[in-house]
Simulated scan of single mutants.
Amino acid sequence: MIRDKVPHGTSRPGKEVQLVWQESPFQNKRFDTCSVVGNGGILKGSGCGKKIDASEFVFRFNMAPMGDKYSRDIGNKTSLITINPSMIGYRYGKRKGIDVKSFTHDLSVYGDSYLWIWAFLSKRHASGAFKVQEALRATGARNQVIFPYPLVTGALISFWKKHISAQRPSTGLLLVSLATQMCEEVRLYGFWPFHADRNNQRLNEHYYDNALPTKVHKIPSEFRQLQLLHNTGVVRLTTHPCQ
């Protein structure tokens, strides 16, 4: 099993952040069923919400929108949510720190889920991640922040770069990898890189908008890898309406 570790940062003005490494909160846990929820446009109108929520543990990523508007298709349950460090600065960055009020407001829709941040891809990313952790502590938020151990992140990226010609694998693919180590049965929803479904109906890029994907990732190549995992029984990939 992949074992990650959780650093708790403490800092004072003018002081460097000190990290105390702790064992993963999932070290001795194994979940029977897990849903990994992608953000693909194929989820819109899918009616998959109840099936997603029926899993024991639900992964979501990049703090994608939730709420009554989407619940029938994506569900309401969240066990772990991710945010990329670059998104912290883009969405919530201020001249000195982050917009704590906006961040905690957006995070609240995920309840007391774990907050997973890929903190150690660069020094700049780590700085933003630490600011989020400190902000959540200051507000008394119940979300436990997890920074995956750098060797774990590096091993996952190195593995997938052998199979995918991309600058970096997407958060979705990395989460699928994590789920296979934590769960007996892994169910995937919202992973579909095409702009039309199996019935040739037009789809947006995401279930909530039509923003174009970054060129850093090779999503069609990743999808082929997910199909291989599905065909060999490692995961269950849902690419049709759940009704």
Rank of each mutant, 00 (worst) to 15 (best):
Y189K: 01
F61C: 14
S46F: 08
N210E: 14
K101T: 14
D106H: 08
P150C: 05
S113M: 14
T180M: 08
K161G: 09
T239A: 14
K161T: 07
I98Y: 07
T153E: 02
V145H: 09
T33P: 12
F223M: 06
W116I: 05
T214P: 01
P150I: 06
G49A: 07
Y70I: 05
G40N: 09
N76K: 12
L43P: 00
F103M: 14
D68Y: 09
L19I: 03
G89V: 08
F57I: 04
Y208L: 06
Q225T: 01
K51R: 14
W160G: 01
Y207D: 05
G9Q: 05
G14C: 10
P65Y: 10
G111S: 11
G172W: 02
N39W: 08
S102Y: 12
M66R: 05
S102V: 09
E184M: 14
A135H: 10
G89M: 05
R168P: 08
K29R: 11
H163V: 05
W21V: 06
A196E: 15
F103P: 10
F61A: 11
D209Q: 03
G40D: 00
P150Q: 07
L212T: 12
H105E: 14
T232C: 06
R91S: 08
N62Q: 01
R12P: 00
R3Y: 05
F31C: 07
V36E: 09
Q227V: 07
L174V: 01
I98H: 11
L107R: 13
L228D: 11
K77M: 06
S79D: 15
A211I: 15
L203E: 13
W160V: 04
H163C: 07
L115P: 13
N28I: 05
W160R: 03
Q181P: 00
V145D: 09
G45L: 13
T139Y: 04
K44Q: 09
V152G: 02
I146H: 12
D197L: 00
A135P: 12
Y90I: 00
H217A: 03
L43G: 01
H230R: 04
D32S: 14
R187C: 01
Y208R: 08
L178E: 02
R60C: 11
V37N: 02
S158Q: 02
